[in-house]
């Protein structure tokens, strides 16, 4: 049964990479059931994250947000700061797709805090870029300028010309 769980996860991932997102969801849901059966929380966490990603490409952003929230919850329980940061980044982007810029900003700020804590300059740059765009969408140009300047500074530092 445990091997079956891993096989479902691999089938979900393979279908995802092939662009078969409906099938990917089906397999990751099966993987999730088995992870829960075994009380395997890291596997449960992976399934949530994989499901969130699949729903993004199905255009079902509300569903994606729900799964990313569960990913975030488990990442916190498992004390995995890197995954917590990634979940916040995903949630920020998902709420941007949903055009809920207030929530997008909340999550991008959370991502920024963790990226700074982990000394992840690339992550920090992404967070600033995203925040600049979200504040622009809200018409808050002072904050947008602040984050655009930080984005430029970090991009120069990491040598990202684009």
């Amino acid at each position: 049964r445990a091997a079956q769980g891993r096989a479902y996860g691999n089938l979900g991932n393979t279908n995802y990479l092939l662009g078969n997102f409906r099938k990917a969801v089906m397999f990751h849901e099966q993987r999730l059931l088995i992870a829960k059966e075994f009380g395997d929380r890291p596997a449960e966490r992976r399934a949530y994250s994989n499901l969130g990603n699949s729903f993004i490409f199905l255009g079902e952003f509300e569903m994606a947000a729900e799964y990313y929230k569960r990913t975030l919850q488990l990442a916190r329980q498992l004390k995995d700061r890197a995954v917590e940061a990634q979940s916040c980044y995903s949630l920020g982007n998902t709420y941007t797709l949903l055009q809920d810029y207030g929530k997008a900003i909340d999550y991008h700020l959370k991502h920024l805090t963790i990226a700074q804590e982990l000394n992840d300059r690339v992550g920090e740059g992404r967070a600033c870029w995203s925040l600049g765009n979200a504040y622009t969408a809200l018409g808050n140009h002072d904050q947008a300028m602040h984050f655009a300047e930080k984005h430029l500074e970090i991009s120069r530092e990491v040598g990202d010309r684009s």
Binding site: L17, N133, A137
Partner: peptide
């Protein structure tokens, strides 16, 4: 509003490009 929507797309597009290849391995 339309212009702002276009502006916000670039950072999200970049994220989605990375997401395409992002799977959590067993």
């Amino acid at each position: 509003v339309q212009r702002m929507h276009l502006i916000q797309v670039d950072s999200v597009q970049r994220w989605m490009e990375d997401l395409k290849w992002m799977t959590e391995c067993e």
